[in-house]
Amino acid sequence: MLSKRIKGRLFVGFTAFCAFIGVAAVAWILGTIIWGGASHITWQFLSAAPTEGMTEGGIFPAIFGTFMLVIIMSIVGVPVGTITAIYLSEYTNRQSKLAQVIRFAVNTLAGIPAIVFGLFGLGFFIQFTGGHLDRLFYSGELHWSQPNILWASLTLALLTLPVVIVSVEEAIKTVPRELREASLALGATRWETIWNVVLPGSFSGILTGAILAVSRGAGEVAPILFTGAAYFLPHLPTQFSDQFMELGYHVFIMTTQSTDVEKTIGIQYATTLVLLALTFTLNFSAIALRARLRKRTAA
């Protein structure tokens, strides 16, 4: 029979070990990818297109495609998310049935698997919207009813909408009630108060939301598998109706469908490292912004 003291030590040790596993996993994943990829990253690799049937060359088209994708996504998703957050926090109260329904919808949206968004993009944007556009304006010729960067961006915008809404709402809450009341008491209307008091006060929160959404969007591959990402393209996307290459998708196809997986292992590691570096840079700036915001609230 173990003494109570030793049992206690063992239990605390076990929980500490569990925490350590989490930390070790992070270190292991990051370590191997940085170790394997760093030596392969050169200016040439970042700025050139793939060559020799994608077994050599760089990943510039994938970097470019990822940036275009998240830019279009944010142009659509961030304003919509911000306005929804404004509506929920400024125009409705907690008890409002409508607000509850919208909140429920946002929570549900956040829980839907990414692959289902991909199916939705295919069914709604490509088949339904694109199909109708083609029938109306292109007499049935395939133009919009094919995977392209616009449909992929819109699908991702929908996926990242909850991220934006949640962090903008959080930021709006940090604007003190007294400021709003002062503004209203001075005769400003509700919208004038939002525009001149609430929005400037929650700017960093909106930025945080946008950054988090971009980071999430840049890392998701499942929704773009069949809404626009391409295996290889000889030229960069210039129009909304073009397909595009993307970093995450590039990692996926290089590891599972490449003609020579062994030969391209360096490219795979380096592409993964670039993707990680991109999402981490974004995440860290969001964390830093949020920390600043919280400090201000506490003060």
């Binding site: 989490g22 994943i29 840049a218 890392g219 998701e220 993707l275 999402t279 981490f280």
Partner: peptide, 8 residues
């Protein structure tokens, strides 16, 4: 860990 993309 939460921020690592699933493809990674």
């Amino acid at each position: 860990l939460a921020g690592i993309p699933s493809v990674v």
